[in-house]
Nucleic acid binder design. Sequence first.
DNA 1: AGCTGTGGCAGGGAGG
DNA 2: CCTCCCTGCCAC
Length: 787
Amino acid sequence: MNPLLYGHNPDEQIVGLQQNDDQTVRLFIRENGRLVRKDDPFFPFFFLSDRTLLEGFVQRHWIKELEGNGFYRFVCAFEGWPPLWEAVRHLLQAHNRKTLTKIEHYSSLESIRLLTDPLNQYLLQSGRTLFKGMRFEDLTRLQLDIETYTSVPNSFSRAARSGDRIILISLSDSGGWEHLIDGTELTEAEMLHELISIIRERDPDVLEGHNIYEFDLPYILKRCEHHGIPLTIGRDGSSPTAAFQRGRPSGIGTQGPVTEVAGRHVIDTYQLVRSYDQSKNRMERYGLKYAARYFGFASPERTYVRPERISWHWDHDREPLRLYAMDDVRETRALSGHLGGTHFYLTQMLPMTLSGVLRSGSAIKIENMLLREYLRRRYSIPRPSTGLQTTGGYTDIFTVGVLGPVLHADIESLYPSIMIHRSVTPAGDHLGIFKLLLQELTSQRLSAKQEMKREADPGARSRIDAFQSSMKILINSFYGYLGYARGLFNDYAKADVVTTEGQKLLRLMIDFIRKTGSIIIEVDTDGIFFVPPKAVRGEASEEEFVRTISDHMPEGISVALDGRYRTMMSYKMKNYALLDYEGNLTLKGSSFTSRSIERFGRAYIKRCVLALLNQDIQELHRAYMETREEIQGRRMDIREFTRVEKLGESIEEYLAAVDAGTRSRSAAYEVGLRIDRSFRKGTRIVYYMSGEDPTPKGFRHARAMADWDPHFRDENIPYYLRRLDEFSEKFSPFFSAKDFHMLFTPDDLFPFDPAGIRILEPTHLPVEEPEDTESPRYTGLKAEKES
DNA sequence: AGCTGTGGCAGGGAGG
DNA sequence: CCTCCCTGCCAC
């Protein structure tokens, strides 16, 4: 094991951590199947740029001057958190700041680098990592789900409402054990006591549940409070505590407090699912039932009970409810088993807890690895630089139309390859850790992939796959870290070096492919879609052709065949459709797949694209006519019309921006204001357009889906017909004006006749000469990034 | 307070 | 009508 990744003490299998007090941390270590406890001294610390700032401050603390010439040249260690906060207050005065309202604000002082999460800080300084040498299966994971009863018909159950209570608690664990605590024979207080004793007895390392952060644990906590029962499920017998949720401000994370249980890890599979989908954006919802079906875990015999029917079932027919509750935990177990592996294996090498790994982004992970090594070598660290990144990937489109056969060739691991082969490393990284890490992770990933090829056992294969894909996530984030404004080791100039080198390589590849007589369709960052020359047909020949391309690339850069397609529809940059040889359709780009397109629009576009790729003219017109009639006849479900938008700003920010005139009113926020004036950042708003104006002012005519009344339908038919025409407009580049009009206009006296309607030949767009590369092109005013 | 990057398209509001 | 500006979402 490389200490750079795994820290010291190679044999230690730590499965849990708990902060005892301000000065010690307790470790839970697996030794020959037994759980051993060990207490370790703990010194809270921060980095400081100038030690004179602490002069005159009398408290027992250690200031160590670090080697090197970075900005944070001192590390100050304290006997506990109170003296650390004392020192922070002292520094605050040195900066002439008086307000002490929010301690976290202090981390923004430029002279001090503060890390506020105690357990992660402990891992950073100790060089320890969790779960070392373990397999994901070695953890004991306990799944938990509660069903609750509401005294108010057709409403959600609330823990605080009298009469509402827990009626079932279903439990399972990763070993296959299953159990139901049934409220039929037990009072709620007895149920809670049984839950506590079961958790203590089975002593799981991980507590799992779907939406457990937002619902199950808070609800259980509330009910425990009500009965005066301490929820002593921590490994030290303590109750859960609230920690702060880390997440992106744009709202992938909820902002509420997260529950932490001493010595264990609490994992919300809802978060697992959401973070899985974040890079893919394939899922419609993140609910348990949908996710289970999406991943293929839902058993065909699974019992479904609609949430609003739970209380009815409890009163009249309990057996389905019991089955339903057990199916819930089984699906939760399947989800976490499937998605938890990558995070588990990352935790083995990062100085972070499992929930820390889950909650943080990849830049933080890279920074923590760098920090740990700098701390271990007693070397000072730089401060984030301010500046401007000016370049990104090269994107261009050369051909619009329907054509094939099409190949997609891409440069493998473009940015990591450039960073390794051209030794692009941040200027502040005097010790060269960035490159060492990148190389180590890359070589571990490659050997894992080799091992996977040899492995026959499916269980072992998926384990290795989880391991190598967690490496991939980290490796691909190294480039992003260079341009990360808050990164201690960021370097905008080097980020530009990576992207401009990437652009050069892509142009080199374009030139070569063009010279072979191929038709280049579109390129994006590291890949090219093209029609190969006539002589290249069939998979073997295509593979060979791509090998030739790869051979013509510089040392260390290799090109692979990423996909082969029967037909491609090229529409705009980053917007295209592919039909493979099995008949599978892939739609890419915000013009076709965006969530901001109503569901009926997405279905319509998909149907039309498929018809176009299959050259089915009649079907194109049929799709138009049928959709049109369904809208006009008010036969569509309201969900076909709703738009879901995520609110990126809080209510205060939005209103302030509107007042200041820097942003205009928008439908989603106005609907949000109407239904709930206290919406949080990241809230999803579901709304539709009402009225009869084909061009309504969205912010005035938008209505929340919750206000929809199926008996008095008021969806704006002229507006949605206009939307239909806007979607149809996407197909205009592929037809003559006359043909297009015939296709996407309702039949008049004469029936529609597909004969004579032709898909246009592809259009080859003029190749733009590269502009003067000496002077970088600025596309407007771009603010300098500051930490 | 919490946060990987740039590039491109769509849609809506505001103002000409 | 158009253009400008913005936000949201998507590709990589």
